[in-house]
Amino acid sequence: MTKYAKDYSVGELMCVTLAREIEDGDVIVLGSFTPLAYASYILAKITHAPNSTLLAYAAVDFRPFQLSFIRAESSATIGASCIWTMLEDLNSVHLKGRGDVEAISSIQADQYGNINLSVVGEYDSPKLRGPGGAGAPEVIKMHRKMIGYFPNHSKMTFVPKVDVITGTRYVIDAEERIKQGYRPGPIKYISNLAVITKEKKAKPFRIDSLHPGVTADQVVENTGFDLEVPKDIPETELPTAEQVRLIREEVDPYGTLAFDFKPGKERLGYLHEILQKELEAIGYA
């Protein structure tokens, strides 16, 4: 009988939900340093997916490591089985469709499987110039599953149509994906409220599961496009007590995972706290 955790944060719930998307043997790619994605993949690697291959920076098949705000790159590099250039990465994983998951986030996401990391507003006179998409706008089409995570489920993020299509899943239906040389897999968005999924171009996103205490109405109200709302929606599977222990004691003892969930104003102070702990751990502070 699985022992579920009684005490967990929404960050830990999202982390575990994303980790459960990783299947043993998957090839998993990390882009920018995002604590949630790193924690999820490393948790999966040390629990149910020991045969997965993790890629980050230039490192291929790196040993799972304890998360740190500053040391992700050196940890991945020192623990790597192979060091690639970006072009080798592209040629070997992305273009061939060998990647299973690269979890992405986005300023806006819409009902068609488009993401926007470019601008909010008009492209030529933007209200907000975003960072751009790096590889994300293209690899979301190439990987088996398109997984997005969104710490703030709102109508600001989930819009009917993105202001700019930086990238798109492009081919959604399984049969069509196979026909065009891509492996079939769903679009799945994990938010702080729920998990929503899209598998057919002609059908809307469906609420797959609701996080504890969240109602379907609440998800519908905070989503800027129509959702399919099944009659009986299951609760998102809770983190187990062991998963929460592993996150807190092994994977992320410095608490980097909570960083994405802090309001903008508190982030700097929180960061100073993490850094202080990291310094103390190496005997410097």
């Binding site: 040993r63 490591f65 304890q66 740190s68 040391r71 050196s74 940890s75 623990g79 190496i282």
Partner: peptide
């Protein structure tokens, strides 16, 4: 030296 030491002191799981 702090930045170099941080790079070396990584912990694998």
């Amino acid at each position: 030296s702090i930045l170099r030491r941080l790079a070396r002191e990584v912990k694998f799981l």
